[in-house]
Design a protein around this nucleic acid. Structure first.
Length: 618
DNA sequence: AGCACGCCGACT
DNA sequence: GTCGGCGTGCTC
């Protein structure tokens, strides 16, 4: 009797996003997840597909061609990866095929031939991770670790997470750790190595060479191991997955920039359900999304933080007070390192009202305003350019001022000629600096590690970071502050410059959870993310966008959608979580229909950009 | 994506 | 009367 295989193609084309049936030639043994060459299209060219089902009959039996050959005998896709692709495609209104093309590794024949599975299994570990009981009893846990630096300069959380991985190995299970950036990946790697587990760990890192990446993918398919990497590792295979760890889930680097615009948190939450694993989300300051999940009771908040650094908050954002200046001075004189966190490096200038002296803000996004070479007002955060009108005090005259951070950094640098000045921004990839009388000026998220930690961490731009009026400004800022603060030494001091009111008090107590919780409560009242989800649709064709908007508002999901003010060729709606699947299904259907008959669709380019969770709109 | 099918204008 | 334009639609 003829047997059939259902095959999917790793392709972003929506028309190919379904299963195709092929008959299996006699004598050919197939397995789920194998790559096969199949004839496809009018010319019956060979195309590589993935076996996703084996069956004894097919409704296409008359049309079905026969599988040409096996392209890769190692099954490269697991059933849970396919389930995850389905779940994510459904949630994000995307296609399974485009996710498969993101998930599957680039094959390298030589690496494949050289690969040999190791049979060594790990046995026994006496490790007792901090959070073991919570994970065993609650399965899904949110926690912040101590603000503590190891003697080698790496943060203590990395060691705790490595310990969790080792503990899982002792139980015969894999761990998957997803970190926001290469800095965190390095900290994890060092911590895993220090425990003596590098042989049982697998790094999933896109900056590795192709053969290393592919070999690591193959290893992950059949070794129980500690898997770790950045965002893309969310889809990496993991044998017998017992624990998922997500670090800094609110960090923007966890958002995939290509369709279907998934983020690590959403993917891993679904993966946790599919693979029945435990899950730990950890960050010093929570995302509003995690606050929501804790309030829903879906996540359990574990109380772990015991060590908090000393803090000092100043309310003047234009200059540093004498006491803080004196403290930094004494640190540098004593040969101890100091970290200054700024929003931007270099000669940042701003525009202030000549009457009331307040900083002027962008009329579009409240970002920082500067004056370009042609004398026009421009915004540093958005594309705004043009007149900014009168100040809220009525004043129209402005003066150009040098802003706090760089001015501060500069004056500190001048004040301490003996200090070595190190600049670190995202572009420079400095992960470590030497201890000593070093003044490190780093942009958000680019703070290097230093042996023993910094004696002083100065959050120089707290004022302007909080002043941003984007929905996620406070969340993003608090995460940056908390992460910088976590690099301070035991007797060190954290100084927040220019904070006032409740936020100043919460920062002083390192109570970022309450800070974000209050922020989240406001958003619940306003029905804004993450209390509701936010959908955005844009298109190169305004006419087709109008069509899709009209048809969507005519469909059965219209009642769940609340339209937000449109900006340019983008429309946005908020909608409840419960109707997410329905909204996604409707959008896939309607966008396909309109796209198919559109005169404006360009080959190889999709007509609509649909994001089911767009963080950039508000 | 390819590629064929199909229905309208300028050519031996 | 045919060659070929690329709009429309399918690929198991």
């Amino acid at each position: 009797m003829t047997r059939y295989a259902k095959v999917r193609f790793p392709s972003a084309l929506p028309q190919l996003d379904k299963e195709f049936d092929y008959s299996i030639p006699d004598g050919l043994e197939l397995e789920f997840g194998q790559l096969v060459n199949v004839p496809f299209g009018p010319k019956k060219d060979n195309k590589v597909g993935i076996v996703v089902e084996l069956s004894s009959d097919s409704e296409f039996s008359s049309k079905a061609s026969s599988i040409e050959s096996i392209s890769c005998s190692i099954p490269l896709l697991t059933k849970s990866q396919l389930d995850l692709a389905f779940a994510v495609a459904q949630r994000q209104a995307g296609s399974v095929g485009e996710l498969l093309s993101q998930i599957l590794p680039k094959r390298l024949k030589r690496a494949e031939a050289a690969y040999a599975a190791r049979n060594e299994t790990f046995s026994g570990l006496e490790a007792k991770p901090l959070i073991e009981n919570e994970l065993l009893s609650h399965k899904r846990v949110f926690a912040s670790f101590d603000y503590k630096v190891e003697p080698n300069g790496y943060p203590a959380w990395a060691k705790e997470i490595a310990l969790l991985g080792a503990w899982q190995l002792g139980r015969g299970q894999s761990t998957l750790i997803v970190a926001p950036d290469y800095r965190a990946v390095e900290a994890l790697e060092v911590a895993i190595d220090a425990l003596g587990f590098s042989n049982y760990s697998i790094r999933h890192e896109s900056s590795d060479t192709g053969s290393v990446r592919y070999t690591n993918y193959l290893r992950a398919l059949d070794e129980v191991a500690i898997n770790y990497g950045v965002r893309s590792a969310s889809f990496a295979p993991a044998k017998n997955l017992g624990l998922i760890v997500l670090i800094d889930d609110g960090d923007e680097s966890h958002i995939e920039q290509s369709a279907p615009y998934w983020n690590s948190r959403d993917v891993l939450l679904q993966r946790q359900e599919i693979e029945k694993a435990a899950m730990l989300v950890t960050s010093y300051s929570p995302s509003a999304d995690m606050v929501r999940l804790v309030e829903l009771g879906y996540f359990k908040k574990a109380e772990l933080v015991q060590a908090k650094p000393m803090t000092r908050v100043t309310d003047n954002h234009t200059r540093l007070d004498d006491e803080s200046f004196g403290f930094i001075s004494s640190c540098l004189r004593a040969g101890k390192p100091v970290l200054i966190q700024t929003a931007t490096l270099g000669q940042a200038t701003g525009v202030a009202c000549r009457n009331c002296r307040e900083l002027r803000e962008c009329p579009e996004c409240s970002g920082r305003i500067w004056i370009d070479a042609s004398g026009k007002f421009r915004c540093r955060s958005c594309l705004f350019s043009g007149p900014i009108g009168a100040c809220s005090c009525g004043g129209v005259d402005v003066s150009i001022i040098k802003l706090g951070s760089s001015g501060l950094a500069e004056s500190l640098a001048k004040g301490f000629p003996e200090a070595q000045i190190v600049h670190s921004s995202g572009a420079e990839k400095i992960t470590r600096v030497a201890s000593g009388a070093t003044l490190v000026i780093a942009t958000n998220g680019a703070e290097p590690f230093v042996d023993g930690g910094y004696s002083c961490v100065l959050i120089a731009d707290a004022y302007s970071m909080v002043a941003g009026s984007r929905l996620r400004s406070l969340e993003q800022s608090a995460l940056r502050w908390a992460n910088a603060a976590s690099l301070v030494s035991q007797q060190g001091l954290v100084i927040f410059v220019g904070l006032t009111g409740l936020i100043a008090d919460q920062a002083k107590q390192f109570d970022f959870y309450s800070m974000i919780q209050a922020d989240y409560t406001d958003r619940v009242e306003l029905g804004l993310p993450p209390a509701q989800r936010l959908l955005s649709i844009s298109s190169t064709s305004q006419a087709d966008l109008n069509d899709l908007t009209a048809e969507t508002l005519n469909s059965d999901v219209a009642n769940y959608l609340r339209k937000l003010p449109a900006s340019g060729n983008q429309i946005a709606f908020t909608y409840p979580y419960a109707q997410g699947n329905q909204v996604a299904t409707t959008l896939i259907e309607l966008s396909m229909k309109i796209s198919n008959k559109s005169k404006f669709r360009k080959p190889g380019q999709r007509l609509f950009r649909i994001s089911m969770d767009d963080a950039s709109v508000l």
